[in-house]
């Protein structure tokens, strides 16, 4: 594992702790999009089905289990939070889920001649999870743009997700150059996903960094 991948993973891990800290210490899920969190849970469950059939490393196994468990817990907390009206969580997620599923059915890494039926369904779900992750942040972005008063911790949560994406891009450049490793589906979707965060970082700069005492 190269340093870019590791920094990316740690930033991703940090994003979970930032969000959990926000939910637990402020006892409020205001400003957190339930839709985005439910999409992330869907992403992790669909992508990490390989936990059942393939072992890569303890690092991968534990991270995957943590990502599924933490996102399930976050969805539970936000969904049951009475203080959150969710009035501004208005993104139409069917416009994300359905195209991602259709695209995954046509553009995926299945090898029908080689794999069994269940393994190929897993490949379709893997591609679906990649496409869905690329756009899953959109409901949260829409909320951030609508809400005047977003807590800094929610913004730091988003920033750590953005850093995770950026370092994964560096990781892929590194792996392509030194290992010849390259999954076009993941790379193209990853570039799209990272570009979506560019919009967030402009907001982050304006609303968080410019407010810091100089």
């Amino acid at each position: 594992m190269n340093i870019f991948r590791f920094v990316g993973d740690m930033s991703h891990l940090a994003s979970f702790f930032l969000l959990l800290a926000k939910l637990i210490y402020t006892k409020s899920s205001t400003g957190v999009s339930l839709k985005t969190q439910a999409l992330y849970l869907t992403v992790f469950v669909c992508r990490y089905l390989d936990l059942l059939v393939a072992f890569v490393s303890w690092y991968n196994e534990l991270m995957k289990i943590f990502f599924i468990a933490a996102s399930a817990y976050i969805v539970y907390v936000v969904a049951t939070s009475t203080r959150n009206s969710n009035a501004s969580d208005t993104y139409r997620v069917e416009f994300l889920v359905i195209p991602a599923l259709v695209l995954a059915c046509f553009v995926n890494e299945t090898h029908w001649s080689k794999g069994g039926w269940s393994l190929n369904v897993m490949e379709i779900l893997w591609a679906f999870s990649i496409y869905l992750e690329a756009v899953a942040v959109l409901p949260q972005l829409k909320m951030l743009h609508q809400l005047e008063d977003t807590t800094n911790i929610t913004m730091h949560y988003m920033a750590s997700l953005g850093i995770y994406r950026a370092f994964y891009l560096l990781n892929w450049v590194y792996r392509l150059y030194y290992e010849g490793y390259w999954h076009p589906i993941a790379v193209v979707a990853g570039i799209v996903q990272t570009l979506l965060y560019a919009d967030f970082f402009i907001l982050y700069y304006q609303s968080v960094l410019l407010r810091l005492p100089s």
Binding site: H12, A54, V56, E123, Y168
Partner: peptide, 10 residues
């Protein structure tokens, strides 16, 4: 994995 290379990323 079915793919040419194992998916070892998260």
């Amino acid at each position: 994995a079915v793919a040419e290379e194992a998916k070892d990323e998260l």
